[in-house]
Design a protein around this nucleic acid. Structure first.
Length: 443
RNA sequence: GUGGCUGUAGCUCAGUUGGCAGAGCACCGGGUUGUGGUCCCGGUUGUCGUGGGUUCAAUUCCCAUCAGUCACCCCA
C-alpha cells in the first residue's frame, strides 16, 4: 500500500498541538459558561435546502449521501454538512421552541465544513466556538453590546497575542447608501471591504463598476469607510458627512451603545470601524470582526453579528445575535508562526522507573498511589539503564522520574537534577507541574 | 471552483547542464556495569510527493495527479 497523504484543507495536529487546542477549548468553554451560556451540540448535517436558504448557490456545501444511493444526490431532501453553527442553531430553536426558555443563551463548539480552496488559516474542516442569544419576537440591543465582552474575556484568557474587535452596524451602511441614492448596497459593501487590500482609488473604481456609483457617491462611501474610532465619536464623523436616513440613525445609536459598553468593560478592546461590514449575508445589525495584533493579514479569527430573519415560523420570529471564534484558524496561524509552546508532549507528570522486570509490580504500585491522588503517571516501558529511562522522560518533557528502592523511594526533577527521598502516598509535585504548561512562545 | 509558485532524510535545506543522492540538526549505539542533558567516537536515516511518458539510463526533461502556499471567490 502506498503511503497515505494529507487531504487538502483537513488539518490534523500533533499530540502536543492537540493538547494546546484542548487547553484553549477548556478556557473558552469556561468563559462562555461564566457568562451563563448553556452547552448545545447539533447534528452535523442539515437538509440542503435549509443550508442554502439564505445564501446564493455560491455556498460551498458538502453533500452527504450513501455510496449506493439512488441518483439525484442534490435533491430537496439531500443532506449537507453544516458550514457554520448559526444556521443549525436557528433550526434547532424553531424545532425546540416549546422546550426552551427565552431569551436563550447557548454556546456550541463544533466542526464546520466549507468546500473552499484552502490556504494558511483557511480550511475545509475547522472548529468554531460559537455563542448566540436569541429571543422571541424582539431582541434587546444590549445583547449586541454583550458579545464583545464575552469574546474579549475568552480571548484574553488564552496564550495568544492581544486582539482588537472591530465593530460596525449594517444599518449604518445600508442607511447611508440609501441616503446617498445607491441601489446595490451588497455590491458597495463588497467593494468597500477591499479598502485595506487595494486602496481607495481602486475601491472607487470598483464602486463605479459593480455598484453603479457616481464619483460623488463613491467618494461618500469611502469617506464613511474611513471612519474609525475607539468610542462614540465616530457618530460625529458620520453626521459630518451630511447624509440623513432613519436606518442610519438607528445604526448609529446601536453602534454607539456597543462601543461605549465595551470601552467601559475593557478600554481599547473594541473599535468602531465602518469599513468592516461583510461576513455572512444574514446579518442585519451589529457585525463583528476580530484581528490578532501582529497577524492582521490573516483575517478575522472571530466574527459574528445580529440576525433578525434567520429563524421564523408563521408569525413567530426569533431574532438573535452571535459570534464565533475560529479556533482552527487561530491555532493554525499561531502553530505556523511557532508562537505556541507546551511544556511537554504528553500529560504524564511522573515516570516511574523500573529497576528490573521482576520488580515491575513495585513500580506499578507507586504509579497507582500517585494516580489515586490525581498525579498523571506512567511506568517506564522497559527496565533499561536508568540513563535511558530518564532520557525517555526527557524526550517527552516529563518533569519527574521516580526511582523505587529497597531502602525507600526517590524522585528526581530532571530539569534541575535535584533528587529527594519521597513516599508515593505523600509526595506531590508543585501545582504548576501537574499539567502541561501552555504558553505564548518567548513570553 | 479558476489561475500562479513550490514539493529532495523526522526538521532546515544543498545537489545532479540526465549516469547507482548530500550537509547541519534530530535519531540510534559506544565511551559511562544501572541516574539523562555537555563532550568524543561510530552508525542509520530517503520508493528525490505519486502515477505515466521520452531515453541505453530520469530525482533531473514532458504530461497528469496529489499536497502546500499565494491571488481571485468566499470567509472562521
Amino acid at each position: 500500500m502506498s503511503k497515505p497523504t494529507p487531504i487538502s484543507g483537513f488539518p490534523e495536529w500533533t499530540p502536543a498541538q492537540r493538547m494546546i487546542e484542548q487547553f484553549v477549548l477548556d478556557r473558552i468553554r469556561g468563559t462562555f459558561e461564566l457568562y451563563g451560556f448553556a452547552p448545545l451540540e447539533t447534528r452535523s448535517v442539515e437538509p440542503l435546502d435549509q443550508l442554502l436558504r439564505k445564501g446564493e448557490t455560491s455556498k460551498e456545501v458538502y453533500v452527504l449521501r450513501r455510496l449506493q444511493a439512488d441518483l439525484d444526490p442534490a435533491g430537496d431532501d439531500a443532506l449537507g454538512l453544516h458550514f457554520d453553527l448559526t444556521v443549525p442553531f436557528a433550526r434547532y430553536v424553531l424545532e425546540n421552541a416549546g422546550k426552551l426558555q427565552f431569551p436563550f443563551r447557548r454556546y456550541q463548539i463544533q466542526k464546520v465544513w466549507r468546500g473552499e480552496r484552502p490556504q494558511e488559516g483557511r480550511y475545509r474542516e475547522f472548529l468554531q466556538a460559537d455563542i448566540d442569544i436569541v429571543d422571541r419576537d424582539t431582541l434587546p440591543a444590549h445583547y449586541e453590546a454583550e458579545m464583545p465582552l464575552v469574546i474579549g474575556d475568552a480571548l484574553r484568557s488564552l496564550p495568544i497575542p492581544p486582539v482588537r474587535i472591530q465593530v460596525n452596524n449594517r444599518k449604518i451602511c445600508e442607511g447611508f447608501y440609501r441616503g446617498i441614492g445607491l441601489t446595490d448596497p451588497e455590491a458597495a459593501l463588497r467593494a468597500v471591504d477591499k479598502l485595506d487590500k487595494i486602496g481607495p482609488a481602486r475601491v472607487a473604481e470598483l464602486l463605479a463598476e459593480t455598484a453603479g456609483a457616481s464619483e460623488a457617491q463613491a467618494k461618500a462611501c469611502l469617506a464613511l469607510a474611513e471612519i474609525s474610532a475607539p468610542d462614540a465619536s465616530f457618530a460625529d464623523a458620520v453626521r459630518a458627512l451630511g447624509v440623513s436616513d432613519p436606518l442610519l440613525d438607528e445604526g448609529i445609536a446601536e453602534l454607539s451603545a456597543v462601543v461605549e459598553t465595551a470601552a467601559a468593560h475593557s478600554p481599547g478592546l473594541c473599535v468602531a470601524d465602518l469599513r468592516i461590514a461583510r461576513g455572512l449575508d444574514y446579518y442585519t445589525g451589529t457585525v463583528y470582526e476580530t484581528q490578532m495584533i501582529g497577524y492582521e493579514r490573516f483575517g478575522s479569527i472571530c466574527s459574528g453579528g445580529r440576525y433578525d430573519n434567520l429563524a421564523s415560523s408563521g408569525n413567530v420570529r426569533f431574532p438573535g445575535v452571535g459570534i464565533s471564534i475560529g479556533v482552527t484558524r487561530l491555532l493554525g496561524l499561531l502553530f505556523g508562526a511557532g508562537a505556541l509552546s507546551v511544556s511537554r508532549d504528553v500529560p504524564t507528570c511522573v515516570l516511574v522507573a523500573v529497576t528490573n522486570e521482576e520488580e515491575r509490580a513495585a513500580s506499578n504500585a507507586v504509579a497507582e498511589a500517585l494516580r489515586s491522588r490525581g498525579i498523571p503517571t506512567e511506568v517506564s516501558p522497559s527496565a533499561a539503564k536508568f540513563g535511558k529511562q530518564i532520557r525517555y522522560a526527557e524526550r517527552r518533557g516529563i518533569p519527574y522520574v521516580w526511582f523505587p528502592g529497597a531502602e525507600g523511594d526517590a524522585v528526581k526533577d530532571i530539569r534541575s537534577g535535584e533528587q529527594v527521598a519521597a513516599a508515593a502516598g505523600e509526595w506531590t509535585p508543585p501545582r504548576a507541574d501537574l499539567k502541561p504548561l501552555v504558553g505564548l512562545a518567548g513570553a
